[in-house]
Design a protein around this nucleic acid. Structure first.
Lengths: 347, 347
DNA sequence: TTGTATGCGTTATCAA
DNA sequence: TTGATAACGCATACAA
């Protein structure tokens, strides 16, 4: 049984192909009677419009690309994907994920992007793009929306988490709890990754500065390059070593991610430091593991980020005004068991 | 600058469209010289073949659908997706995820599936399909591969985790550790979900039976229906209540998922039972949280499941023999801190 | 409101 | 090895 085409439906319904097309898409002026007739015919023939043929004829692909910096099984990406999907799927769009992990892949991808007109829009998640890539992206006529894309001015719209707000809340919490010596522990990201990795550190620095800390009592600790192949445990060991060899130990730390925070807390306890009595720890993200580890953390909501991106894509595609083209999601502090008021002895 | 078409390339290269098509796809007989010429022209015009037009003309969509029972941000689905993507993307296929959460959605989806010929193959993840859906699926000419699909005979190929093997290992571990009274704690899945939820329980029962347990010392505990709206914590409280009100308390439990295991362990500790000294706990899945919670668990590897599904799709699409059409992934036991040898006092 | 005719950018068949 | 040319299945001016 070969697939029915629009011509078969037209014949069966006794109308023209054009009318079938109009009726089935629910657009244009079609009388209710003929529409019903057409629908019945289509139903009997088990017919739906071919997306490919429609695309070719109309120029609309009904497909949007989600370009992720990193794999689809990572917490952030999976959530953004689900969010984008939730909004776009009901409107008839396919979302087609693409992953790019290192710079070579990115280069190849963007080099051939302008040629490809196989999607109506593209959302870019967590990418750091160089000038070349931006130009190539712009040379495409595709609407572009960025998710957690620093310096997102090359996008038609963008939405991200407010790292500055988040870090600011974390630092103020620690200050309120009486801490006066704090540190930031950075994650290790290999050089050829396409992530942007610097913003949370900068945000910490700014927040510390805004709250009266200086370089003497607000320290940045990051992993060495040769930590590249390290597991998170190895990374944590390295970070804790640096922490413990500081002239004066901080009484509280902010980690770049929950993963780092948890690994560090584990290592600290291994070194017989009590968390949070001896040292408070704050994570970032609020992934599943943060709850299990009872980790105080800063929440970002990538699912909602994705939904918002989806809405912006839709608005762009329809020429509707986008409320704000650029917006950032407020971070919220989730208080759990790894932070505590500085005890008298700790000062 | 409007997009270049194959005709432009042909003109620039001084050959026919047909030759351009052949040259660019790397098929058929094309002399190296003309191929080079064509490629240069395509490059200069920034041209790539339109996927849509190719699809329409060739009948191949170069697209495969991944149908998930549940959202894309769930651990299992996100990993399967990544796995499928890893295999299919390098071969030029798009993978287009679809999520179906409840039975109504499933019904709608499968009802219109036969009409749609918008993908070359479909992989079905964690679905339980009724006869109608199976028939509709079969009436499509699309190759179908199942992932964790019980009774997968309606698929052309299938790959899943071996729940029986996993539960068997768990039960034997507990037996080796001296436990003689064990229980299985079921997760709560609403009725209208499309998951299959019974297999792990059955697997536990069979494993218990195989190892000499009977209904007196191997107990099944599952949540009541009105637990539907419960959080995992609420579910755990309910399960633990049932556990503690048993005539004789088991000294070890297997949970259907890590999530349940962790919530239950937490509730048990809240009730001042020591885990594992008073009661051993084993999870299932080995997700991130299992490691953080130091949970002994049975690992399944959905990423590898996805890759394998991708390979089977490829084989099916190419008419190659599939090693085994149906296979199941061995489960492995991950020993962590929630299981321990039964102490003398515990017996 | 409906029908006719043309084009969308390829692939594939058949000749040359 | 290459070139005409007819599909592929639909959308959309334009006409009726």
């Amino acid at each position: 049984m070969t697939r029915a085409t629009i011509a078969d439906v037209a014949k069966l319904a006794g109308v023209s192909q054009a009318t079938v097309s109009r009726a089935l898409r629910g657009v244009d002026k079609v009388s209710p009677a003929t529409r019903a007739k057409v629908e019945r015919a289509a139903d009997r023939l088990n017919f739906t419009l071919s997306k490919n043929a429609s695309s070719l004829a109309s120029g609309k692909t009904m497909r949007v690309i989600l370009l992720c910096a990193g794999k689809l099984n990572e917490w952030f990406n999976a959530n953004v994907l689900q969010g984008v999907y939730e909004i776009l799927e009901p409107e008839g769009y396919d979302v087609s994920p693409s992953v790019i992990v290192d710079k070579k892949e990115a280069e190849r991808y963007f080099a051939q992007l302008p040629k490809n007109r196989n999607a109506d829009a593209i959302v870019i998640s967590s990418f750091q793009l160089d000038e070349t890539a931006r130009a190539q992206l712009r040379s495409t006529d595709m609407p572009t929306v960025g998710v957690n894309t620093p310096a997102a001015s090359f996008c038609d719209a963008a939405i991200g988490i407010d790292n500055f707000d988040g870090m600011s809340k974390a630092v103020r919490l620690l200050t309120s709890l009486g801490h006066t010596r704090i540190a930031f522990l950075g994650d290790y990201i290999p050089d050829d990754m396409v992530y942007d990795t610097s913003q949370r550190m900068e945000a910490f620095l700014k927040a510390a500065n805004d709250n009266g800390y200086d370089t003497g009592n607000a320290t940045i600790i990051s992993a060495d390059k040769h930590g590249a192949t390290l597991s998170k445990d190895g990374l944590a060991a390295q970070l804790v070593a640096k922490l413990l060899s500081l002239p004066t130990m901080p009484t509280a730390i902010c980690a770049e991610t929950d993963q780092v925070a948890i690994a560090v807390a584990k290592e600290l306890r291994k070194q017989r430091l009590r968390v949070p009595e001896d040292i408070s720890v704050i994570g970032f993200d609020d992934t599943d593991i943060a709850q299990v580890a009872d980790l105080t953390t800063i929440r970002q909501d990538p699912l909602e980020l994705g939904r918002n991106a989806g809405r912006k894509v839709l608005a762009l595609l329809r020429g509707q005004p986008l409320d704000p083209a650029y917006e950032s999601q407020e971070a919220s502090l989730i208080l759990r068991g790894t932070t505590v008021r500085l005890s008298a002895e700790g000062r």
